[in-house]
Design a protein around this nucleic acid. Structure first.
Lengths: 189, 189
DNA sequence: CATGAGATTCTAGCAACGCTAGAGAGGATC
DNA sequence: GATCCTCTCTAGCGTTGCTAGAATCTCATG
């Protein structure tokens, strides 16, 4: 029994290693640099081992994205709780979201632009994802008139659009903060 | 002299063919299906011919994107001009933008998410791109207080976020119209 | 202690990708 | 008619994600 347990423990540890290696490599050199060969080399096993843990590269990216959702939820929660008041909460949460995306672009991509296999706007979506969106919803509660869910989705989309277009060079970078402030202002009534 | 002219004409025609084939294939099966081999087969020439016209696959995508900008500008212009009034113009232009993105997702991707080589928010950006953004700017003129440029960028980002997150299954599809209306409403004062 | 079964991991390779070097064919020029 | 030059093709390089089948290692059983 104990042997089996040790095996499973080691196996879980190796899986953790794969996800960590993928994330590190992606954050350092972008997702294009994350190849199965480099991952295998990093964990000091051969390529096929990856496929005994994950169905493919997409599944590894999804695992990285899942980590990201949990961290995003935590960051948003901290921002909301440390806000000076309910009105400030929205601005602080939005700023935390923007900072998260700016500091971990590769992670953000895995979460919101690349992987499509994860269920999103449905009850089957991962708990961490629900938690992250819930933080945004709570931050918007004080400024919501009726349909909180739709309002939160729309504001989130605005944030997401600003950050992705900004990062891809589609917007004047010197106006970034002004646009963020403008968006928040438009959703603060 | 005439021979040289015919040559150049035929060459330009072949270049047009390449772009058209890339666009068709992308719209039918997505950009992943657009390979240099399939493109070569479609135009009935060998692969290296593509590289005598374009520096690589990215350049072909950029050419397709350029077509898209022109068409988007035209669509937005039509929407703005046929609007019943200056207040309705913003809603109509936004609706036209959303329809464009929904009907030609691959084209939209080439324009706004994939290719990064094109200059964007700068004077060097292609004329068609300036024209398209200018339509949005004009539609927002009546509702702008002071900084029209930043306002237009922010509203555009909101639209872009809604459409991309929607298309990738990140938002509840049944609420799409409601979110669009909400965004427009928030930017209509 | 030896052996066979079962799980685990590796080597080697497939098909497809973007892209390119160098050979060959064709028409224009002297 | 020989020579050049432009154009196009065949063939191939290095890389990708992924997989089949051989090899190795572990462990319970005779």
């Amino acid at each position: 029994m104990s042997i089996r347990a040790r095996r499973e423990r080691e196996r879980a540890e190796r899986e953790r290693l794969i996800v960590a290696a993928a994330r590190e490599l992606a954050e350092a050199e972008g997702w294009d640099a994350v190849t199965t060969r480099r991952l295998a080399e990093q964990i000091e096993y051969s390529q096929p081992v990856l496929y005994s843990h994950f169905s493919g590269k997409d599944a590894i990216m999804a695992a990285v994205a899942l980590e990201g959702f949990a961290e995003l939820a935590a960051a948003l929660r901290t921002a909301r709780r440390s806000a000076s008041g309910p009105r400030q909460a929205l601005a602080d949460v939005a700023a935390a979201y923007a900072a998260f995306a700016a500091q971990r672009p590769a992670l953000y991509d895995a979460m919101f632009t690349h992987v499509v296999n994860l269920p999103f706007a449905s009850p089957e979506a991962p708990a961490a994802l629900h938690a992250a969106f819930d933080e945004l919803r709570r931050a918007m509660q004080p400024v919501a008139d009726d349909d909180l869910e739709t309002l939160a989705e729309t504001f989130w989309s605005g944030l997401h659009g600003l950050l992705t277009l900004m990062r891809n060079g589609r917007l004047r970078s010197e106006e970034h903060q002004r646009r963020l402030a403008l968006l928040i202002r438009r959703f603060s009534t």
